[in-house]
Every structure is written in structure tokens, then in C-alpha cells.
């Protein structure tokens, strides 16, 4: 099975979230976009350029932060960023790096060896090196993974600040959907190498929240059997002992639920339309594929 299959993603100006299960193809997609991996069939293109043949030209417009913290441990943050800045051909290196270090809150640690950095500082350094060439698009792979909540908030604020200040667009690949919810305005969901859905967050929220209901009962399997006999639902699935139903006739469905529970003598613990969160959208879209 190919890792990616007819995957088309659009990355608009702004901050875009890129989500999918483990092994869904997120990191592979980033690898293909950077020209690290060759598409064995078809073509991958970005900025209208072939990702494999023109990877150098594409990378001139990109900033990338990989998931791994592969930075030269014996270098100081300033020395490392100086080297990166020279590769980008930046002329006012000292000034640029001073500003970047300030932007990512690393001024206090600029002369310390990178190997002494905490996980949060590593991520902030990664963010700084991704933004050093003032790229059109910054691709961040798991920017908030393995760091504490306060560190995550700091990183997210920095990303938002950078977008506001410099107009840099971001593509953020992550599993932490609550993080995306705070800063993203566009979402791309992939699974098994295919795009499941993509669009403006508000549009997706409306699309997936309309007719989805969450039910909590004392005996979910028995309740599902009864539910499936009605004509009001299109799909039903279970997540964490909670029943989710995609409904085609909400009014009738809402009237039937208490009736079914009472007929089966089951305790109806909760019954509500799903919240408009990314986690809900994600579990519906990827859940449907299961």
C-alpha cells in the first residue's frame, strides 16, 4: 500500500493544521514536499515546482522545523543560528539573530551550549531556525510534542506572533488538536495517505457538527442494536464508551432516544449534540474510515 495516495492539500495564507493518525502519512508528506522522499508514482509539486527536481528552489521559500531535535549540541544557540543565517545569505546577521532570539525568548540562553537546553528551549530554537530566512511558509512537525503545558502555550503564542508580525504562513503537523484550535484558521485531515477533508476551521466545524449527537447510556451495545433499527441515523460509532450518531432527521431522532432508553430500561446518562471542537471533527472524519 502506498504511503501517500492522490493526496492534494492546499495551504492558504495563515496558520494551517495538518492532522492525522500515527502512520497516516503526515511526516511522509512533509518529506515529499521538501524533496527528501521521491514520489514513486505521479508528481508532487509546491509553489508550482516539482518537489523532487526543484527541491533547492522550494527550500529557498521554506522554513522547516523537524520533529527531532537534531542540533549541534556543542554549539551555542547564537553560533548555530549564525551558521544557518549564512546559508540563507542573510546580510545583517547579528541584528537578525538578536531579534529572533528575542522573539523566541532565548536571549538569556544564547551563549549556552545547545545540549544543555530543555525540551521547550529546543522547540523554540527549532522555531527560530525555521524562521531565519523570513520564509513564505514555515512547516512545523510536532512543534509542541513532549513539552509541558506552559511551554506549549509559549510556543503557540510565538507562532501566532510571528504570523501577525511577519505574515509568515505556517503548516503545523501535530496530534495535539487542542493546540491547533487555539491558533489555526485552516485544517487538513489525512488518513492512510489520503486527504479526508480540508477547509476553513469554521466551515469544517459547521459541516461536522450539524447532525452529530453524543449519547451516554448504561449499556451501549444494547442501545446501538435498537438504534440501528430506526430510520433516523446514517452512521453510528463508539468512542470511549460514548455512542456517536450521524443523524438524518434530528427532530425525530431526539424524540426517539428517550423512548428507546425507557423501553430497554437503560439509564440515559447524557444526550447532546457534539461540541464544535477539532477533536470531535477529527474523530468523526477519521472514525468514519475505521
Amino acid at each position: 500500500m502506498p504511503a501517500l495516495n492522490e493526496l492534494t492539500i492546499q495551504i492558504p495564507n495563515g496558520i494551517s493544521g495538518f492532522v492525522g493518525k500515527n502512520g497516516s502519512g503526515k511526516t511522509t508528506t512533509i518529506g515529499v514536499l521538501l524533496g527528501l522522499i521521491k514520489a514513486n508514482k505521479g508528481q508532487a509539486s509546491m509553489f508550482g515546482l516539482d518537489c523532487w527536481k526543484n527541491s533547492f528552489e522550494i527550500r529557498q521559500k521554506l522554513g522547516v522545523m523537524h520533529e527531532t531535535n537534531a542540533y549541534p549540541g556543542n554549539f551555542s544557540a547564537r553560533r548555530f543560528l549564525t551558521h544557518v543565517a549564512k546559508l540563507y545569505g542573510i546580510t545583517q546577521i547579528d541584528q537578525t539573530i538578536t531579534q529572533l532570539l528575542k522573539d523566541v525568548d532565548l536571549t538569556h540562553a544564547q551563549d549556552k551550549p545547545i545540549k544543555t537546553f530543555s525540551a521547550g528551549m529546543f522547540k523554540r530554537l527549532g522555531l527560530a531556525q525555521a524562521l531565519i530566512g523570513n520564509p513564505e511558509l514555515a512547516i512545523l512537525d510536532e512543534p509542541t510534542a513532549n513539552i509541558d503545558p506552559l511551554g506549549r502555550i509559549t510556543i503557540l503564542e510565538k507562532i501566532k506572533d510571528m504570523h501577525t508580525k511577519h505574515g509568515t504562513s505556517f503548516l503545523i503537523s501535530t496530534h495535539i488538536l487542542s493546540d491547533l484550535e487555539k491558533i489555526c484558521n485552516y485544517l487538513i485531515i489525512i488518513d492512510q495517505g489520503k486527504t479526508i477533508d480540508q477547509g476553513n476551521i469554521n466551515t469544517l466545524t459547521e459541516k461536522y457538527s450539524a447532525n452529530i449527537y453524543k449519547i451516554e447510556v448504561s449499556n451501549p451495545p444494547q442501545f446501538i442494536t435498537a438504534l440501528q433499527k430506526t430510520d433516523t441515523i446514517d452512521k453510528v460509532w463508539v468512542e470511549n464508551d460514548k455512542i456517536f450518531c450521524k443523524v438524518n432527521n434530528p427532530e425525530m431522532f431526539c424524540a426517539e432516544i428517550p423512548k428507546i432508553a425507557s423501553e430497554l430500561k437503560l439509564q440515559l446518562k447524557g444526550f447532546q449534540q457534539t461540541l464544535n471542537s477539532l477533536e470531535e471533527i477529527y474523530s468523526q472524519t477519521v472514525g468514519e474510515k475505521r
Binding site: 521538501l34 524533496g35 527528501l36 527541491s55 533547492f56 527550500r59 529557498q60 521554506l62 522554513g63 522547516v64 523537524h66 527531532t68 531535535n69 537534531a70 542540533y71 549541534p72 544557518v84 546559508l87 540563507y88 525555521a130 530566512g133
Partner: peptide
């Protein structure tokens, strides 16, 4: 193994 190469190939170098 360390991911250095991946990082280096994210910069505009051939």
C-alpha cells in the same frame, strides 16, 4: 540516525 541530514536538507543547500 540523528536527523542532522534531514535538517541540513531543509536549508537552501544542494
Amino acid at each position: 540516525g540523528r536527523g542532522d541530514l534531514k535538517r541540513m536538507l531543509s536549508y537552501p543547500v544542494k
